[in-house]
């Protein structure tokens, strides 16, 4: 008898794009459905819950608050601490809980992605702590995490120059596509998360895994810009509608 716990080994589909349509029915430049909600946690100063396709992520912001341990504090600006963590049940096969090499790296690059917009000099000797918990993962979690963290920071009332929006692009079956899902990420040729400040066009995070030619890279970056613009509109809509909802009650 076959055990229930036995893993199904996923096989690579023959083709990931058939007649310009992807496995889940999207076009090449289409994004999975996104739902963002701000202010979902009572105890946090700012929070945000995002559902991006099958990704489910919650971001919480605490601070500005006193720095513990004290030696980490900076005299003339606030420090920012970003913790990206994936729950043990977030992926198909149970993941060992706690920080690992991957999540430490993502925490670092995500922190650097949101740092340029924060006006840290307004809160010297304090810290702003961002916690991003991935409850369910389906590729593109670091981009979704940055998107959620940026909304949570705004919700916390922290002074910032702009919002940061992020999305991943990649190459699947030799074609540049926007917003990869799990299968496309696993069996595709390249994956490139991009975070940017949409209004100024500044790129704050750019990583790449796989191989792209120069032309493909430029095409991917253009596509990411388009995607980020779309994400930014959703972020703005989420923040503005939250206030309106409260006001109309």
């Amino acid at each position: 008898m076959q055990s229930k716990r036995e893993m199904k080994i996923e096989e690579k589909p023959e083709r990931l794009i058939v007649d310009g349509v992807r496995l889940d029915g999207r076009k090449k430049d289409e994004i999975r459905p996104i739902k963002i909600e701000a202010g979902v946690m009572n105890r946090a100063d700012g929070s945000c819950y995002i559902e991006w396709g099958k990704n489910k992520i919650i971001a919480a912001v605490y601070g500005p608050r006193e720095v513990h341990p004290r030696h980490l504090q900076e005299t003339y600006r606030a420090i920012i601490r970003y913790r990206y963590n994936m729950a043990s049940f977030a992926v198909d096969e149970r993941r060992k809980p706690g920080p690992d090499r991957r999540s430490i790296e993502i925490s670092k690059v995500s922190r650097e992605a949101i740092e340029p917009v924060l006006m840290l000099e307004q809160y010297p000797r304090s810290s702003i702590d961002v916690f991003v918990e991935v409850l369910q993962a389906d590729a593109g979690t670091r981009a979704a995490g940055i998107t959620a963290a940026s909304v949570a920071l705004a919700d916390a009332g922290i002074p910032m120059k702009n919002l940061v929006s992020a999305i991943s692009v990649g190459k699947v079956d030799g074609e540049v596509v926007l917003d990869l899902d799990k299968k496309e990420d696993n069996f595709g040729d390249a994956d490139m998360p991009v975070a940017m400040i949409v209004d100024s066009g500044d790129v704050t995070l750019l990583q790449m895994d796989g191989v792209l030619t120069k032309d493909e890279f430029m095409e991917a970056l253009e596509l990411a810009k388009k995607g980020c613009k779309y994400i930014y509109d959703i972020q703005r809509e989420c923040l503005i509608s939250k206030y309106k909802k409260v006001n109309s009650d």
Partner: peptide
């Protein structure tokens, strides 16, 4: 005096 809701960077 007018009031409207704004986000960072507006």
């Amino acid at each position: 005096m007018s009031k409207d809701i704004v986000i960072p960077g507006y």
